[in-house]
Amino acid sequence: MNDNLMTDAPVLRLTVNGEGQQVAAASVRALLEALGYDGEFIAVAVNQSVVSRGRWGEDLLRDGDDIEIVSPRQGG
């Protein structure tokens, strides 16, 4: 885990893909890095609103946020 991320951001209690997590991350990008999401084809919603890739660097995460991290999958 990145020490800079740890020191810069307060620890937030988040729900990530249905599971409780405590993560020191203020932005979506920092969250993905902290949790080890390194796939290229990922989309993210915070509280059921999509956060487009262009906004992943913004400090928009808040304590209690509900986050979905998704990727392409088989479908019919």
Binding site: G18, Y37, E40, I42, V70, S71, R73, G75, G76
Partner: peptide, 22 residues
């Protein structure tokens, strides 16, 4: 082709490998 959107697992790249096939 129809595809879907599903939760990605931390540390995984399931979506990337599937998307490459598609």
């Amino acid at each position: 082709l129809t595809v879907s959107v599903r939760r990605e697992t931390a540390g995984g790249a399931t979506g990337d490998s599937f998307w490459a096939l598609i």
